[in-house]
Design a protein around this nucleic acid. Structure first.
Lengths: 286, 286
DNA sequence: CGTTACTTTGAATATAGTCAAGCAGTGTGG
DNA sequence: CCACACTGCTTGACTATATTCAAAGTAACG
């Protein structure tokens, strides 16, 4: 079983190194990592899953590779992306420990996306054939796999909601907050962490321009909500970021908005009063 | 087995009526409807799935209902939506014949969305327990279900791409085109069909303002690309709509764009030449 | 026939994107 | 160790796209 050791961001790789001997995992270990209940009826199962190392920058799987393995992240940070009609990259997610890569490929039996290691990684190979066998053997396991797929659908749907109804500020705010939450789940700090991805990758992921990301981070910083130093982030006021969640987008700026945001507007810049404005400009980026 | 009868939009309900006697479907019929291979090892299976009628406007399932059944659309048109933090509706999809509703609910065993009938509907109840049994009985069936889930993930991801990197025009264009394709799959015309949903629902689905949808439809109409009469759509130049796909968003307006679009700009309005424009304004909405 | 809900259109405005330039951190070779 | 280039990031100025507000038009319904 994998002990859930809490360790700071800085020691992640060191910890990773320590694991280098564990080359194979059991079904139970895999289930723990996937955050699903251990199927009791598979306690005796002898299947073992191979670990593979990837160095930062290496490609885990390429778009259109035939589906042989799913990839379960044991350690490290990755970027999963697809290429659209125009060969433009489209960042889909930033998988980390416990995430299963490749569930999208079951449909057509070919990978629909490519995954790159953003840091050194330890990845567990989960052959699809083994997965099928286990589903057959254990109803519990079968259910769990459906749960994971379902979870993935819900997660993607959530992102869809983010894309549709949030302003750029709210997107960035939410992104930071959620990264914090994810780190927390892994035992790191939710308030102080290192973004493993470039601004470009963030911008792509959020569907906004890179300059916009940069500007918004600066604004947040100036407001004292976060601290930014390159990719090193400190979240000072997480509530602010979650509050942004609520006042999503310009589409439903309600009465509530005035109250909170107008303050920020003034913190941000020396509110030169424009005549006849419907609402305070909330987080003017200039 | 369900014969694939091609009939015009207008006769859908009439046809629907004809079916009113079919109250139960077999596993094979369900698989056909789901567009997955019939599991040979379930040929003898005696499971039967109940049909249920819904009238336009009725609710099929509510958010947070415990997961008992998945819903397979046999006939009719629906709208699936969720409610966000702010009780704002968020339209997720417009299920029609062959679509499976509720795969998102497996994760937490509660429905994560609500579904409303936009027209009279015939829905097949698929108890989750039965689904699990069948997965256990038939590896083929199990694989097929995973495929469906995977397909759903890919589909949602596609929408994510649409949301992120397409302009409003392109979104609407793509929406119309895809509706056409979906109708075609069901044996209707891909060029002439009736949108079952309101402008509001379209706007919500696409993540743009309702006025924007209206304007863009008008522009398309004026350009002679489509005909709009309330919810009755005729697609005259589907290629135009698919071409819009490519020149997605302002984010990558490339050289290609000039060529094609500048013509349209002039068709659209009496191109009053603005001085110093980088590119022709393509589909000015005014 | 009037009320309601949905849709279209116009005008003004805001948000975010593009272009352009400069800055900061990193690495390489002299 | 420093100049050099290189890449990634930030900031400013300008502009386009799409939103909001407002109003009028149209279809649907009792």
């Amino acid at each position: 079983m994998l002990p859930a050791i809490a360790h700071s961001t800085r020691h992640a790789f060191q910890h990773n190194e320590l694991r280098s001997k564990e080359l194979w995992s059991s079904v139970q270990e895999v289930c723990d990592l996937l955050r699903i209940n251990r199927p009791l009826d598979l306690y005796e199962d002898s299947s073992r899953f191979q670990h593979v190392r990837f160095k930062a920058g290496q490609t885990v799987n390429l778009n259109n590779d035939p589906l042989e393995n799913l990839f379960l992240v044991n350690c490290g940070f990755l970027k999963s992306s697809m290429t659209d009609d125009l060969d433009k990259e489209l960042v889909l997610s930033f998988p980390m420990k416990g995430d299963l890569i490749g569930v999208d490929s079951i449909h057509l039996q070919h990978h629909q996306s490519q995954t790159m290691a953003l840091s050194d990684c330890d990845i567990i190979l989960v052959p699809y054939s083994t997965l099928q066998e286990l589903c057959k053997k254990s109803e519990q396991f079968g259910h769990a796999i459906l749960q994971i797929m379902s979870r993935e659908i819900v997660r993607e749907r959530y992102m869809l909601g983010v894309q549709r109804s949030l302003s750029a500020e709210a997107k960035v705010g939410r992104f930071l907050y959620m990264m914090g939450e994810r780190y927390a789940q892994l035992g790191y700090s939710s308030r102080r962490f290192n973004l493993r991805m470039s601004r470009n990758e963030i911008a792509n992921y959020l569907g906004v321009a890179i300059e916009t990301v940069s500007r918004i981070l600066s604004v947040f910083h100036r407001l004292g909500v976060i601290t930014v130093n390159q990719r090193e982030i400190v979240i000072i006021d997480p509530a602010f970021l979650t509050d942004l969640l609520k006042f999503s987008s310009t589409k439903d700026r309600s009465a509530e908005r005035c109250t909170q945001k107008s303050q920020l507007g003034t913190v941000n810049k020396f509110a030169k009063p424009k005549q006849q404005q419907r609402q305070q400009p909330e987080l003017a980026l200039s």
